[in-house]
């Protein structure tokens, strides 16, 4: 550890210790201090994700830190604890999004470039979306294929952003089940 990171860790430790003792302002200070570091980690590891999705992942990491802030050992440095939670949640988030949201787009791209290569690829994602109810299908097309943000889709469809996210998540889970040959 360099002198600079030691100083930084001392600041984080003081803020987090105060936060866990009930100091809300110290807690806000701690979260603000670690946010840019976490954002950097997520950006470096998740280049294939758009800024909106990276911000969603950041929020998931912050929520996990919040829920598990009592597991930090005050006798130990903060950084390894923080990075372990961040890495765990980032991997988790990438696994869910990487498999579910991004494969259909790639399938489309391949299908357009080489229609004969794999006749099932492009048809599959279109067919999977086609099996959804119209509203879910519109959300998946808008967010996953057209790249609109959940906020934009929510405004257009008169749904809250959270409701759009939940609907998207469920639709993708249903598509994954369709792809495995089950009925949703």
């Amino acid at each position: 550890m360099t002198a600079k990171t030691t100083d930084r860790d001392r600041d984080w430790a003081a803020a987090l210790a105060a936060a866990n003792a009930g100091d809300a302002r110290a807690y806000a200070r701690f979260l603000h201090a670690v946010m840019p570091v976490l954002r950097g980690v997520i950006r470096a590891r998740g280049r294939s994700f758009g800024p909106d999705q990276q911000e969603d992942i950041l929020q998931e990491v912050l929520l996990a830190i919040h829920a598990k802030r009592h597991t930090w050992d005050p006798a130990a440095p903060v950084a390894p604890w923080l990075y372990a939670i961040a890495r765990y949640k980032v991997v988790d988030a990438f696994r869910r999004r990487g498999a579910a949201v991004h494969l259909p787009i790639e399938d489309f791209a391949e299908g357009l470039a080489a229609p004969e290569a794999d006749p099932t690829a492009a048809r599959d994602s279109a067919a999977l979306i086609g099996q959804l109810d119209p509203r879910s299908a519109e959300i998946v097309r808008a967010v996953s294929l057209a790249g609109e943000s959940t906020a934009e889709v929510g405004a257009r469809m008169e749904m809250s952003e959270g409701a759009v996210r939940v609907a998207l998540h469920r639709a993708i889970q249903r598509m994954a089940r369709f792809a495995k040959g089950e009925r949703g």
């Binding site: 936060a19 866990n20 009930g22 809300a24 302002r25 807690y27 806000a28 979260l31 603000h32 946010m35 911000e55 950041l58 929020q59 912050l62 929520l63 919040h66 802030r69 009592h70 597991t71 050992d73 005050p74 952003e161 959270g162």
Partner: peptide, 21 residues
């Protein structure tokens, strides 16, 4: 939700669980 708003909400959400032992 903006990340700034989330942080404000988390900071105001009351005490942490008892420290891990």
């Amino acid at each position: 939700m903006r990340t700034e708003d989330l942080i404000a909400e988390l900071a105001a959400s009351g005490p942490a669980a008892p420290a891990l032992t």
